[in-house]
Design a protein around this nucleic acid. Structure first.
Length: 533
RNA sequence: GCUCCCAUCGACUAGUGGUUAGGUCGCCACCCUUUCAAGGUGGUAGCACGGGUUCGAAUCCCGUUGGGAGUACCA
């Protein structure tokens, strides 16, 4: 077995090969003894002729999936790491599965997540159009090319006939596979009949001709080499009877025409890789390098799907996850740059990304860890950034007219106690309006008969603190001094204070809370409770 | 069924022939403390199994078992 490193052609290794393909002088020397040295020279004097180009190619059949986000992210990181380009291509060749608004969702979610494409339907580019439905002529033309080369053929079977063929095969206990010798196609029908059917406009498909013997070898950056016996590979339909291509044709044609150098996609595509390899060979095109990513799994170790609950990026956005956290989390599902850290900015990930360090085994999407990570970002991100998230949430919670500076001060106060920005309106509701619910059990435990007088006295003393001096330090000084006078622990006073001011037993430091709440409101609440109890 | 892929704590992973198998989440305990968190410290827990190769295997090879994906005129 070769070491993995040798299969990968990152740009630094590439000039060797491409120099020979494109450089006139090198061509002359191919096979000669000077080859090695020349390649070495070329790599020094010639700028790298290959630019890394990768693509994320979703089909607009629904909301962007977190697995899709991960695939796109790896493409993005790889492209940026190598100074290459990342392309978004919409694979909408299945008219029956088209979902209105799906493309829009995909684009919006990437914008939210901070993944930018250099080319795509939303930003343009010189390799467009970027929607496959707008490129159908291209596919028809290329299918025709294969027909002429004899690597593809016409078939006239109906869906029902195919269905019956499969049933027969299942009954016979053999693997379902298109049978060229018994079905209705240009081989069984003969050239005249085929021409006649085509001329009269009979519905037909174009299938890839796969030899019955031999084997096809594939190379994958993360998985290494695999061998497939050709007889197990199906004669894939390339052009459907509605004139649209299947994924297999469209993806090869587009990847080639768009100059894609690396195909980075999920493992579910691995079984069709030999077909793709054969297609490249059929066209006589140079193959890109492939990297098949491990699947994202549910708790049941199955491919993460809609049935497993939250699976779309929008779900997580709506639940209040920060894009930075989701992206960071999803990046670490299948790739790990270093053993001693978990939190990485996008820039750091770009700098460290390496396809060779991508794992082979599927990864379970563990929400617990995501939650923790969201909390980490909540605590680390600058208040200014978090304010953008917070303001609309306060609005939604019915707290109108809250000043941004005050809102971020509150967030700063309690951010260590919550995991989501969206927890704040509930967790600290008492900071945006009068206390709605007082925790009676809490009061019973800490509000003693003498407490009423003490709270009133505290209110009196705090009255003496000027507005300018109203801060954690001076509030704390007043209360600790009073506690000392009473010969009691500060806790004896702090719990009733917490009760009077927040109504809850859980919250941020009391003095800090009072500082942010403000003198007037704090005193008012103390006096109200002293009077009420 | 067939084809292909995969296999380190419950989860995410580090590890590329010699390590007391490391880190993170979770869980537990302790510390800090005005509550709850956060933070700190410690703990719990793992190389699926069986054969080889080797002085030596989590690591390389083979097999078994287990899991997954694919098997469409879907992507």
């Amino acid at each position: 077995m070769w070491p993995r490193r040798s299969w990968v052609q990152v740009p630094s290794l590439a000039p060797k090969k491409h120099c020979f393909r494109r450089c006139f002088f090198c061509l002359w020397f191919i096979g000669g003894p000077a080859r090695q040295r020349l390649a070495w020279l070329a790599s020094i004097f010639l700028p790298s002729p290959v630019m890394v180009r990768v693509r994320f190619a979703p089909s607009p059949t629904g909301l962007l999936h977190v697995g899709g986000l991960r695939s796109a992210l790896y493409n993005y990181l790889f492209a940026r790491h190598h100074g290459g380009q990342c392309i978004l291509r919409i694979e909408d060749t299945d008219q029956t599965r088209y979902v209105e608004g799906a493309e829009q969702n995909i684009i919006e979610m990437f914008r939210w997540a901070g993944i930018e494409f250099d080319e795509g339907p939303h930003v343009g580019g010189s390799f467009g159009p970027y929607r496959q439905s707008e490129r159908t002529e291209l596919y028809r033309h290329h299918a025709q090319v294969l027909i002429e080369r004899g690597t593809a053929y016409y078939a006239f079977d109906t869906s029902e006939e195919i269905e019956r063929m499969r049933e027969r095969q299942q009954k016979a206990g053999i693997a379902p596979k298109y049978d060229r010798t018994s079905m209705r196609n240009q081989f069984t029908l003969g050239p005249e009949e085929t021409q006649r059917l085509l001329a009269e406009g009979a519905e037909h498909t174009i299938r890839l001709f796969i030899p019955l013997t031999g084997e096809t070898r594939t190379t994958d950056i993360v998985r290494g080499e695999s061998v497939f016996a050709n007889r197990t590979i199906d004669d894939q339909i390339l052009l459907k009877s509605d004139g649209f291509p299947t994924y297999h044709l469209a993806n090869i044609v587009d990847d080639h025409l768009m100059g894609i150098t690396h195909v980075i996609r999920a493992e579910e595509w691995l079984p069709s890789l030999p077909k793709h390899v054969m297609l490249y060979d059929a066209f006589g095109w140079e193959k890109p390098q492939f990297a098949h990513l491990p699947l994202l799994l549910s708790r049941e170790r199955k491919k993460l799907s809609k049935r497993d609950g939250d699976v779309s990026v929008l779900d997580y956005k709506d639940k209040g996850y920060l894009p930075e956290a989701l992206v960071n989390f999803v990046a670490l599902l299948g790739w790990n740059p270093t053993a001693d850290r978990e939190i990485f900015t996008m820039e750091e990930m770009v700098a460290m990304f390496d396809l060779e360090k991508v794992n082979k085994a599927g990864a379970i999407f563990d929400v617990d860890k995501l939650n923790w990570m969201n909390g980490m970002y909540l605590r680390q991100l600058p208040a200014e950034r978090l304010g953008d998230e917070l303001m609309p949430l306060l609005q939604q919670a019915g707290f109108d007219g809250v000043e941004r500076a005050y809102a971020t001060a509150v967030l700063n106060l309690v951010k260590e106690r919550i995991n989501f920005v969206s927890d704040l309106p509930t967790f600290a509701n008492y900071m945006f309006g009068p206390v709605k619910n007082f925790d009676q059990e809490y009061a019973e435990k800490h509000w003693k008969p003498e407490t009423t007088g003490q709270i009133a006295e505290i209110a009196n003393r705090l009255e003496g603190v000027s507005d300018a001096d109203w801060n954690t330090t001076s509030i704390e000084a007043v209360i600790r001094a009073y506690a000392e006078e009473l010969g009691a622990s500060a806790g004896k006073l702090i719990h009733p204070l917490r009760y009077a001011i927040t109504g809850k037993r859980v919250g941020a430091g009391m003095f800090e809370t009072m500082e942010v709440l403000g003198k007037a409101e704090s005193l008012q609440r103390l006096q109200a409770q002293a009077a009420a109890r």
